[in-house]
Every structure is written in structure tokens, then in C-alpha cells.
Nucleic acid binder design. Structure first.
Lengths: 219, 219
DNA sequence: ATTAATTTTTAGCTTTGTCTAAATTTTAAA
DNA sequence: TTTAAAATTTAGACAAAGCTAAAAATTAAT
């Protein structure tokens, strides 16, 4: 895997994200995403094509190649690992880390990322609940989110618990909630943010907003 | 404090280091340090002068301004904090961290460095024993080094102990070695790396290489 | 005190990544 | 289906940071 400039990496990452949403990507779409003029996008695309990172036909839009995709996942892995570090080690608020991670992700040392990932315990999700690709570029398809944010009527699978205090785990045990449990969100009470849920085949119960916020799920 | 490009920062840092050794700095000296042609150095100096970071008279050498000096210390602080992180948190060997820190030091987030320093426990020395400037740019003048590496006949002051196990502290107490003790290195034995020292006014004793390696001193 | 050697600066070019304005191609509409 | 609108590409410029070769200034040496 060769090294790329920060600018090239930003384009690659942006194309990856747009592909997720729109399939094929257009010049103007990408120009919006990377905040440059359409003309600059065309220039960069010719460069990325010459490096075999995108399939590109003038006027016809473009897509990442196999290599381009792998490269994008590599950058996203770095970005999300750094976000995890900033929140869980340095104590940043989860909504304040994006900009800094945007810079850190371009540091190229392979060993740094291997060691960082190990130091963090090889986390699977970043602080926003987005999956972190593994070192082979394999990515969990699902997004993790707090139970408090799961839309009504959805059934989700518990994947992690934020507050791991004894008291919390004790309470979860009482509700029969464990990692892997399937939970259906039935109702949300505006007054205090409490949530009515059905855990597996058990009868419905109501959990407080405090609990709901701490339970993370895959939808 | 404005933001500078990575390139500007590298020049500033290099000028700082050369000033330490040579006082006034010349174009060719700096060109050697930053690995560019003398012509490029001249170009950059005109730019740094226009930003009030250096005092510069054509053909007459140059020096950092007050602002330039403060900027250099800021970069050095970042560099050394990252080195500390890489060694003490990620488990890098101390002689493998320079290159990576060279990249990390250019990340500009103020909050990142404040939090990183706190996370590391506001260390005073990097893994090479070099002092880490504080957030006001104040720097300990002395270099820290393992007692095992202190040249013979030198008198040094104990500043920290690496292995803080009970057994180690017990042994140090036996030798009357404490933080702040003045130690004179009298002899080194090739065979096992043991060192003959005189602690304050006490009679000379020999300490093992194992102990010498763990005692850090200011020279 | 000239001259020779060394150092530094200037001049002119190159590469990246950006821009605006003009030209071209595609898409949409009458 | 011809034309107008929108999107894309090309052309030409610019700033940053580097280069080489030539010119100018300083330093050292006879």
C-alpha cells in the first residue's frame, strides 16, 4: 500500500462516503463534499485515476477501484480509532472530536495504528457508534446506537454497555438484558424519556432514560 | 498564537536547536539541518521574517525573535509529549519514536495537547531525558539521563526513579539515595556494568547496573 | 590590499493543489 | 427534436515549497 497526500486521502474518503449513499458519484457532488471547485475535482480525479484508485470516464461519474476502496477503509479505520482514543482516553466530548481526528488520520505510520488499536483494546465501534474496519478492511455493516435513540417498533441486538458499574449490571440482570439480547422498542414516554421495551419473549417493561442511554445496540 | 505550516514549523524548530549550539545561525548550517538547498533556506527566511519569527539581515545570519522562540518551544513541547505517549502508553522502543513524533507535532489542536499532557500526568522529561517545556514555554535547563550513562567523575542530582517497586525503593533507601541526592560517579566496572558512586558525603559504594539503569539524574 | 574561495542571494523553473472564466458535453424542456 | 439549462472539463493563473545555475557579497589567504 503506497502513501498518499492528505488531500488525496480526503478525496478518497469523500468518494467512499458518497458511494455509500448514492452509488455512482458525480463531480459536483464530490466538489460539495470536499469543499473545492468542480474544476479542482476534475484535476484530482485524473490524478487518482492515474494511480488506479478510481474508475473514471469524463462526464460519466466515477467509482473507487478495489484498491481505492481498501485505501478508504484504511483511512476510516485510522479516523475512528483516533476518535475512540480522544473520547475514551483523553475525555473529549464525542461531538468535538471529528476535526482533530481529521488531522490525525493522515499520519501514516503503520506501527502507530497497530499499537494504538491494541492499546484501545481493538474496539469495534467509534464513539458515534460507527463501525471501525479491521486491519484487513473488513467492516461490520451495522451501526451501533444508544437504545434511547432507537426508533419505535424496531427490534435491535444489545452490543455493549457504556456504564459498566456494578449497580448498572445488577439492574440489567434484573431486566434480563445481556449482550446479544434482542430488544423491541415499543413506546417512548416524553415526560422523562423512559422507554417501554420487550426483551426476547418476556413481558414488556419500562426502563429509565438513564438506562436506555447506556445500552448500545446494533440495528 | 497563529498557525504555521509543517514546513515553517520545521524551520523554526531547526533554528532553535542550532541556536542552542552555535548562537547565531547561518544559511548553510540551517540548510544542512532541514535537508534543503541553501536557496530554499533563504526563501523561507524571508517568509519567516515577514511573519516576525526571525531577525534576519541578508548575508549576516539570523536568530529567532521572542515570538519565534515561543513558537519553537510550543512545537518541542508537542513533540516530546507525543514521544512520551508513544513510549509509555503504546510501548514503542524509545529509539523508534522520533519519526512518528515528527508528524504528530504538527497537529495544531490546542485542546488536544492540554488533554494529552494531563492524561500523561504532565511529564517533565521525554523518553530520551530531554525536558518538556511547560504550556508557557518554560523549560528545565538540564537534561535527564540514567545514572548508568553518566560520565565518570560527574556529580549529578537524582530526579526520578523508573522502577518504583517496593523492592527497588527499599534498596535505594539502603544506599541513602533519594530524589534530590547528589551523587558522584567514580568508577564503572566493565564486567557487569556496576558503578561505584559516592552519595553526598557518605563513603563510596558499588551499585549494580540494574539499579544504575533505573535511577534518573539531572546533570 | 588584492585576489581567490566560500557563502549567500537572486533568477527562473517545477510540482501540488487550488482558483476563475471559457468551452464543451450532457440533460431537460419546450 | 431543437434549444436552453446545468454539469463538466479545459485553459490559464497563483501560492507554497522546493530545485539548479548564475550573480553578488563576505571571508580568508597570499
Amino acid at each position: 500500500m503506497r502513501n498518499f497526500t492528505a488531500s488525496e486521502e480526503n478525496y478518497i474518503k469523500a468518494i467512499y462516503h458518497l458511494e455509500m449513499i448514492h452509488g455512482k458519484v458525480s463531480t459536483s457532488l464530490l466538489s460539495g463534499e470536499v469543499q473545492t471547485s468542480p474544476a479542482s475535482v476534475t484535476d484530482m480525479l485524473k490524478k487518482l485515476q492515474s494511480k488506479h484508485l478510481v474508475h473514471y470516464k469524463p462526464y460519466r461519474g466515477f467509482n473507487l477501484t478495489e484498491t481505492g476502496n481498501k485505501t478508504a477503509l484504511d483511512i476510516i479505520r485510522k479516523h475512528r480509532l483516533w476518535e475512540y482514543f480522544l473520547v475514551n482516553k483523553l475525555g473529549f466530548q464525542w461531538d468535538k472530536v471529528h476535526e482533530v481526528a481529521e488531522d490525525l488520520e493522515h499520519i501514516s505510520s503503520k506501527e502507530l495504528i497497530i499499537r494504538l488499536a491494541a492499546y484501545l483494546g481493538n474496539p469495534l465501534f467509534d464513539p458515534h457508534g460507527d463501525p471501525i474496519p479491521d486491519n484487513k478492511g473488513k467492516i461490520k455493516l451495522l451501526k451501533q446506537s444508544s437504545l434511547a435513540l432507537v426508533p419505535i417498533k424496531q427490534t435491535v441486538t444489545v452490543s455493549s454497555v457504556k456504564n459498566q458499574s456494578f449497580e448498572m449490571l445488577d439492574l440489567l440482570k434484573h431486566y434480563n438484558i445481556a449482550i446479544g439480547s434482542k430488544i423491541k422498542v415499543q413506546r417512548k414516554f416524553e415526560f422523562d424519556g423512559s422507554v417501554e421495551i420487550k426483551v426476547e419473549k418476556n413481558a414488556a417493561t419500562v426502563i429509565s432514560n438513564d438506562v436506555a442511554i447506556n445500552v448500545y445496540c446494533l440495528l
